[in-house]
Design a protein around this nucleic acid. Structure first.
Length: 699
DNA sequence: CAGTGAGCGAGCTTCCGCTTGACTT
């Protein structure tokens, strides 16, 4: 029998480590946390220094039983969860469970799962770091108090089953405020003036290019309307065009770091239209292992929940050799490319990469379904490209002047050397270093416009040479509202603000969707009326917590706890005291927006009592007033009668399987009349009364 | 361009973060 027990979080990690450690060690998985606060109550004794009451998580009972059995008769127990706050806390809870098993308990940590790193870690076991544990407890307890105090306020004042929390409520706020910006957006007219030009020299005259009016004299050309544009246009038409200057520059394009969870979710959405949850489901499968040919199941990628861009030396070496071999020296950087994780990263894992670059996507295709293949392909290419040389573009910008003061600008880009781009094309929207402003409102030039102009081919031009004008066109534009959030842009924003973790981005989106705070239309996340109401209430009564910086401030405090700088109880007190005050105020002052039931003249088909209009999760419906004795319900009819003769029923708004709205007869299935558009009420036919309540058109 | 057709209310509900599998019909 093995002498020692090793415990890690995941079964896949257990399997790998088992190979490295040999017969003396038995490796088991805890499957994440095994103890937590109870679901059914607060479980925190605020009066006694926030003493938490932990219980074994229902789902982990079997695991715990198994671990206890394994621990019996062992000499040592090595706790090897991830080297971060949560991992330390998991270790602490495990130690608590196993403390009476008779074996010595030690903590081991490693940042990469390679033989050397694991062996090295086992040579230097340590005690559990209580500072890390306490930082996790502070985080856990704060989230519990917040979530379990705010949610009931919403039950009381809005509707049952609702929820609020440090992460989900701020994610919702982002979406709600973006929608407000869009609603309030006033498009502003502006014009552009573009000239189609060509050289007069024989050898270049075939290439016609486009230049845009940029400056008049020293001033930026601002064309506010048609009148101004036409006036300037008619002046320019009389002028001669010549080249005022040519500027050529080489622009280097650097490869991007291999994927973190957040970046993977963004790219998989932008390129493949995978929602975050789908990406994670598929990545999990690739990680756990796929049967490839004769071999047993092989994990095709490294762990998919990570905020690190680090990669193991071994993987880097393999990638570099592969690049040299397959693409040649020009694509092989002299010294390896190195990337820095963001400051707040906890770096418990490597970046997401293929477990071996030698398993090329095309070879794996036969073992994968189409979606698995596309995601693996993306991960593989991103990783390989991250170890390749820079691409080089030649960017030419030409200044053209009409007469003395009308300056036009034209630019073109030519790729001189692809570098990493031969494997992985950049999408400009997810550049790491991008400025954050382009989603803000009122931007004139969309990126698309700029790109189209840069893509054109320019003729060879010389300073002062004369040009032929073929066409001068003024075009009307309007500034555009900012785009709605989708999975990619929401995850990107949350990560930038440090809100949530790799394991929670997708679940957070799911939560605000299932609470009916937000709806998905196409890819866009659009707040519902409920989402608007809840956000307004929370922002009004809990501005601090709904602040976009709240999590970042909390993290600063947690860092101090980790470093041993402050007492975690004190951090909780500093949070809790002002929170209690706000809570007390909110309890008396928050206005109820609960929808009270409304009496109707409809009678219950089951018991004959009057029916009430109630508000449920899916909007209004009719319910018997004798509830709960009589459970009869019906959809709320419109006030338009069924046009079938002798039917007499009213039409009901319904939704088909595919989510399309239509109207059917109340007497279905006896009467099967349906229509897409609500007919006018009989009394109104011929009159010019206002039409029936207009319905949102669905495309 | 076809062709469509739950449930929801109440005795409870809820947080964030770590991780996968499912006692039985």
């Amino acid at each position: 029998m093995a002498k020692h027990l090793v415990i890690v979080e995941s079964p896949a990690k257990a399997k790998t480590i088992n190979k490295y450690l040999g017969k003396d060690y038995e490796v088991e998985a805890s499957m994440g946390h095994i103890r937590d606060l109870p679901k059914s109550k607060m479980g925190v004794d605020v009066a006694k220094d926030f003493a938490p009451h932990y219980i074994i998580i229902q789902k982990a009972r079997k695991t715990v039983k198994n671990l206890l059995a394994r621990a019996k008769g062992k000499n040592g127990i090595f706790l090897a969860p991830d080297p971060d706050r949560e991992g330390e806390a998991i270790s602490w809870h495990l130690a608590h469970i196993l403390k009476d098993a008779g074996a010595k308990i030690k903590r081991v940590v490693f940042n990469e799962i390679t033989k050397d790193a694991v062996k090295e870690a086992f040579n230097h076991p340590r005690e559990i770091d209580l500072n890390l544990v306490n930082a996790q407890q502070a985080r856990r307890i704060m989230d519990r108090i917040l979530g379990y105090e705010l949610s009931p306020l919403l039950w009381r004042n809005v509707s049952k089953g609702l929820s609020a929390g440090r992460v989900q409520s701020v994610a919702l706020r982002l979406i709600v405020e973006r929608e407000k910006e869009i609603r309030d957006f006033k498009p502003v007219e502006y014009w552009s003036l573009k000239a189609r030009l060509s050289s007069q020299r024989e050898e270049e005259k075939e290439t016609i290019f486009t230049a845009k009016l940029d400056k008049i004299g020293e001033d930026k050309a601002e064309l506010k309307n048609a009148e101004i544009t036409n006036e300037i246009k008619s002046k320019i038409e009389k002028e001669n065009f010549r080249v005022a200057g040519v500027d050529e520059k080489q622009r280097k394009r650097k490869a991007q770091a291999p994927f973190t969870t957040s970046k993977l979710q963004q790219e998989a959405y932008n390129r493949l239209r995978f929602p975050a949850a789908k990406t994670m489901r598929i990545a999990q499968k690739l990680y756990e292992g796929i049967e490839i040919g004769e071999e047993a199941a092989v994990g095709l990628i490294t762990y998919m929940r990570t905020d690190s861009v680090n990669i193991s030396n071994l993987a880097q070496k393999e990638a570099r050799e592969f690049i040299l071999d397959k693409y040649g020296e020009k694509f092989y950087p002299e010294s390896p490319n190195v990337y820095k994780s963001k400051k707040s990263a906890q770096e418990a894992h490597e970046a997401i990469r293929p477990s071996s670059v030698l398993r090329e996507p095309e070879q794996m295709r036969q073992f994968l379904d189409n979606d698995e293949f596309r995601l693996y392909d993306l991960i593989w290419k991103r990783f390989v490209s991250s170890q390749m040389t820079e691409g080089v573009d030649l960017v030419t910008s030409v200044s053209v002047v009409a007469g003395e003061k009308y300056f036009f600008k034209a630019s073109g880009t030519k790729n001189l050397f692809p570098g990493f781009l031969i494997v992985y094309q950049n999408t400009t929207t997810t550049d790491d270093a991008e400025e954050e402003s382009d989603e803000k409102s009122g931007k004139k030039d969309s990126k698309q416009d700029l790109e189209d102009e840069e893509k054109q081919e320019l003729p060879k031009l010389h300073k002062n040479e004369a040009l032929d004008l073929h066409q001068l066109t003024g075009t009307q534009h309007f500034t555009k509202p900012p785009a709605r959030y989708n999975d990619a842009s929401l995850v990107k924003t949350l990560e930038e603000k440090g809100i949530g973790r790799p394991s929670t981005y997708a679940p957070t989106i799911y939560t605000i969707l299932t609470r009916s705070y937000v709806e998905r239309k196409g890819g866009a996340l659009i707040p519902t009326e409920l989402g608007d109401i809840v956000t307004e209430l929370l922002v009004k009564h809990f501005p601090k917590i709904l602040n976009y910086d709240f999590t970042a401030l909390m993290e600063e405090e947690l860092d101090k706890i980790e470093e041993g700088g402050i007492d975690w109880i004190q951090v909780l007190k500093d949070f809790h005291n002002p929170f209690e005050e706000q809570l007390a105020l909110a309890k008396t002052e928050m206005k109820s927006v609960k929808q009270e039931p409304v009496a109707t003249h409809h009678l219950c088909e089951s018991c004959g009592k009057p029916m009430l209009i109630r508000w449920g999760r899916f909007g209004q419906f009719l319910a018997c007033s004798a509830f709960p004795e009589c459970k009869f319900t019906a959809s709320l009819p419109t006030d338009v009668k069924c046009p079938e003769k002798d039917c007499g029923g009213y039409l009901i708004k319904r939704r088909s399987g595919k989510g399309r709205t239509f109207y059917g007869c109340q007497n279905y299935p006896r009467c099967t009349y349906t229509t897409n558009k609500l007919p006018k009420k009989e009394e109104e036919i011929g009159s010019d009364e206002k039409p029936p309540e207009s319905e949102e058109m669905e495309s």
